[in-house]
Write a protein that binds this DNA or RNA. Structure first.
Length: 500
RNA sequence: GGCGGUAUCGUCUAGGGGACCAGGACGGAGCCCUCUCAAGGCUCAAACACGGGUUCGAAUCCCGUUACCGCUACCA
């Protein structure tokens, strides 16, 4: 009772009103899986507590930002099913507000002009490094006499605005880490406005988060050391603090921050590799979050219901593509063929197996084909790869399969010929009569059923692996199936002549 | 170097003083099912970083050590 009351009270700031969270990527590449996961956690939180999930594009670095990247971020989020509320905010458009806030800080005595040049600072840093000391700006410009400052301003000397870090300690109660404290003496008087008048990251972020009325800042834990600076800015601006939640990073198999050399890092890469968005989102959610207990395979709405910041992990997680593929296999099996169809069709058409018109003409059959193949597929590509035999085009036989199943060509020819005869006599092209007929055939020939099924499987699919042989036969249809057997028989004949 | 963060099977994690010779999942090994491959079912191997405390009792709380990660720009 007491404990739950305490838990309730500490959670109050999160729940007193509808929370407003944001995802704030910089458009300098593609939507990274790490960013996608941060977005997901924010989205889940907003949806769970009926708040707003906002999107802010941090495009202040004009040299690196591109419209293409911005589009990729929109597309990635949309593909994952993460919709955002209100208009997208572009940080560059907040410039005037950032400058007003920085100016306010100067006017209120929380910031001062610094005339030190980048080159001078660089030299000081190097000198400190050479002595083995750690460098921190020595506040020399804060000691300039007022008339001297005025003189240099009038002279047109370039200057930056530095924040005057007060004495004391800056701390906050992080939603995932608990209390974190930084002694202010370790924080240097950081720049808030460049000499060209543009804001530095921490200034812009705080200014924007205030303007957007963000109540919970949830971001990667690489921002932990930015947080005390931002808190100082909120205080100096006289604005109440949001809550902060720092979620862990995603690493590659080698324990290092996930990067290009670990393979695919963009969510678009996984879409191209045949991963379902539902699987991607499920997998990402479990990287750094757990609903508690043994729950693993979940849909987005189940995750919303189960989401809680209590389940957030402090430790960095390793991105394991093996588990992603397994997860995708699970989602493939669980997703009805009607929902899979729009995803499979373009790939199937691109592979040249069928046209979109063909597929819609035999829609019911097509859906049953997807249902047949999805169970043993781990990606959408697996489905397409396995689909070929069921379409009328020519088949090529897998070399190893031929060596194994049709090793004795004469015998294979014989088996397939009798199978062909046996099947062609069937009046009802259904599993039960087929199975009866073929098993009887095996019996009369005195061989195990598998000795017939395997050569037949190769004739029908060109491979040694496929769904159950009767499912293959039924799905393929009488005409195509018999034709494939004929082709195999002919192949075996021709080959024998060539050999003799 | 300074500051901050983190530490449970190879990986994702459950657990939050006794219910734990630590549970689930991926991956691995094996068995069952079986016409093959998947799926599914069952079984096995596999972890509390280390050292000190506190306590009747520690994976859980405290301290230290180690390792790893992040930050340390007029980048974001």
């Amino acid at each position: 009772m007491r404990a739950s009351l305490v838990a309730y009270v500490t959670r109050m700031p999160l729940l007193t009103s509808a929370p407003r969270v944001r995802f704030a990527p910089s458009p300098t590449g593609y939507l990274h899986v790490g960013g996608a996961r941060t977005a997901l956690f924010n989205w889940l939180f907003a949806r769970k507590y009926h708040g707003q999930f906002l999107l802010r594009i941090e495009d202040t670095d004009k040299a690196r930002s591109t419209d293409e990247s911005t589009r990729a971020i929109f597309e990635g989020l949309t593909w994952l099913g993460l919709d955002w509320d209100e208009e997208v905010v572009y940080q560059a458009q907040g410039l005037a507000q950032h400058q007003r806030d920085a100016r306010l800080l100067l006017d209120r005595g929380h910031a001062y002009r610094c005339f030190c040049t980048a080159a001078e600072l660089d030299a000081q840093r190097k000198a400190a490094g050479a002595r083995g000391d750690s460098f921190r700006y020595d506040r020399r410009c804060d000691r300039l006499a007022p008339d001297e400052v005025q003189r240099r301003v009038d002279a047109g000397d370039p200057f930056v605005l530095r924040f005057r870090v007060p004495n004391g300690t800056t701390s906050w109660d992080d939603v995932v880490h608990g209390p974190i404290a930084f002694p202010n003496k370790d924080i240097e008087d950081f720049v808030i406005l460049r000499s060209d008048g543009t804001p530095i990251y921490n200034m812009a972020v705080v200014s924007d988060d205030i303007a957007m009325a963000i109540s919970l800042v949830m971001r990667g834990d690489d921002h932990i050391s930015n947080t005390p600076k931002q808190i100082l800015l909120y205080d100096a601006l006289g604005h109440a603090l949001p809550r902060f939640a720092h979620v862990p990073m995603i690493h590659g198999l080698d324990g290092k921050k996930l990067s290009k050399r670990h393979g695919a890092t963009a969510v678009a890469d996984y879409r191209n590799e045949g991963i379902l968005p539902s699987a991607m989102v499920n997998f990402l959610a479990l990287l750094g979050w757990s609903p508690g207990g043994d729950r693993e395979v979940m849909a987005l709405d189940e995750m919303i219901a189960l989401f809680s910041t209590d389940g957030l992990q402090k430790k960095a997680a390793v991105f394991d593509t093996k588990k992603l593929e397994w997860m995708n296999g699970q989602h493939l099996s669980l997703t009805p063929s009607t929902a899979l169809e729009p995803r499979v069709t373009p790939d199937l058409v691109a592979s040249g197996l069928a046209s979109a018109e063909d597929l819609s003409a035999k829609h019911v059959w097509y859906l049953s084909l997807i249902d047949l193949l999805k169970v043993r597929a781990r990606t959408v590509h697996d489905i397409v790869r396995q689909a070929a035999p069921y379409f009328p085009g020519p088949l090529s036989y897998d070399e190893d399969a031929v060596a194994k199943q049709w090793k004795d060509r004469a015998a294979a020819h014989d088996v397939l010929s009798s199978v062909r005869k046996c099947l062609s006599e069937l009046t009802d092209w259904q599993t039960t009569p087929m199975e009866e007929a073929l098993r009887t055939l095996a019996e009369t020939r005195g061989v195990a059923a598998g000795k017939i099924f395997q050569p037949l499987r190769l004739a029908l699919t060109g491979m040694t692996v496929s769904p159950g042989i009767f499912d293959v036969l039924v799905t393929m249809g009488r005409e195509l199936a018999l034709r494939r057997i004929d082709d195999a028989v002919r192949y075996l004949e021709v080959d024998q002549h060539l050999l003799t």
